[in-house]
Amino acid sequence: MTRYFRDHPARTGDRMLLKMEHYLEHYDELLADWQGRDVSFLEIGVYKGGSLPMWQGFLGPGSRLVFLDIDPACRDLALQGTTVEIGDQADPVFLEEVGVAHGPFDLIIDDGGHKMHQQITSFRHLWPRLADRGLYIVEDVHTSYWPGFGGGLRAPASFIEFAKDLIDRMHSWYTEDDAGFPLHPMAKEIGGIRFYDSLVVIEKRLKEAPVAITAQNGQVSRSRRMLEVRGRRSIF
């Protein structure tokens, strides 16, 4: 397994990198197949600029690397081959401008202000700009448990609760309550959601309604009946 991210701190220069250490191991696992690929990349949050050389060294030389920050001083931290846009991640107009100018993106990472309205607004407006098979990663979601950031344990407005709701939306194919729990459009867009300590990873995978297969003696049949039956007590 690659150790690019875990080994990177020992290779840093004068730009400070601030990450939870266990994120680096997760990135080595999650993104092993991405190393050297030319992709369209967006990260929210520049801070001291330490992540710019990290991502530039990991992704392919033809990648489009865009970074966002609310601090105008961060513009001076841009490296050759990168773009730093200045604006508020909770401003839908700014996010739309970024999406039009630079999207669609293959990989989006939110390491910005970590407040609930920031994370949720950014996701809502940038998810449509994420390409099929892309990943949307939100860091530092432990702030969902901090009232000072708009969170709190099971606080309805927290990003963690928002992400839990995405699980329901992903599974809304299987509803037996069309009025109370209708099919949500994001069921056709979310391929998977992974929760790690302080990280949420949402995979975009455009798809049609799930199909059940039966196979015997090499003969395969397909059916969507599982999505249509109501009042079921067994799938067998």
Score class of each variant (00 low, 15 high):
residue 155 A to T: 10
residue 159 F to N: 09
residue 157 A to W: 13
residue 166 L to G: 02
residue 178 D to C: 11
residue 162 F to C: 04
residue 165 D to P: 00
residue 152 G to F: 04
residue 164 K to E: 08
residue 151 G to N: 05
residue 168 D to T: 11
residue 181 F to Q: 07
residue 177 D to R: 04
residue 179 A to W: 00
residue 154 R to N: 14
residue 177 D to Y: 08
residue 169 R to E: 13
residue 156 P to V: 14
residue 175 T to M: 08
residue 162 F to N: 03
residue 157 A to K: 10
residue 180 G to T: 02
residue 151 G to V: 00
residue 169 R to I: 07
residue 173 W to C: 04
residue 173 W to A: 01
residue 150 G to Y: 08
residue 168 D to L: 14
residue 163 A to C: 10
residue 166 L to P: 00
residue 148 G to L: 06
residue 169 R to W: 09
residue 175 T to W: 13
residue 151 G to E: 03
residue 179 A to C: 01
residue 175 T to Y: 09
residue 167 I to V: 10
residue 176 E to S: 11
residue 150 G to E: 15
residue 178 D to V: 15
residue 150 G to L: 07
residue 177 D to H: 09
residue 171 H to I: 07
residue 173 W to Y: 09
residue 168 D to Q: 12
residue 175 T to P: 13
residue 149 F to T: 03
residue 156 P to R: 11
residue 173 W to N: 01
residue 158 S to I: 01
residue 158 S to V: 05
residue 151 G to K: 03
residue 172 S to W: 01
residue 180 G to S: 01
residue 169 R to A: 15
residue 166 L to H: 01
residue 175 T to H: 09
residue 171 H to D: 06
residue 160 I to P: 01
residue 158 S to G: 04
residue 179 A to K: 03
residue 162 F to V: 03
residue 176 E to D: 08
residue 172 S to P: 00
residue 154 R to K: 12
residue 160 I to H: 10
residue 179 A to D: 03
residue 165 D to T: 12
residue 157 A to T: 12
residue 159 F to T: 08
residue 159 F to Q: 07
residue 160 I to S: 09
residue 161 E to L: 05
residue 156 P to S: 09
residue 155 A to K: 05
residue 154 R to Y: 12
residue 159 F to S: 06
residue 171 H to R: 07
residue 159 F to D: 10
residue 180 G to Y: 05
residue 172 S to G: 04
residue 167 I to D: 06
residue 153 L to H: 09
residue 161 E to T: 07
residue 154 R to H: 10
residue 170 M to E: 06
residue 155 A to M: 04
residue 149 F to P: 05
residue 148 G to N: 07
residue 171 H to K: 11
residue 162 F to I: 05
residue 165 D to C: 15
residue 164 K to R: 08
residue 157 A to R: 10
residue 175 T to E: 07
residue 178 D to L: 13
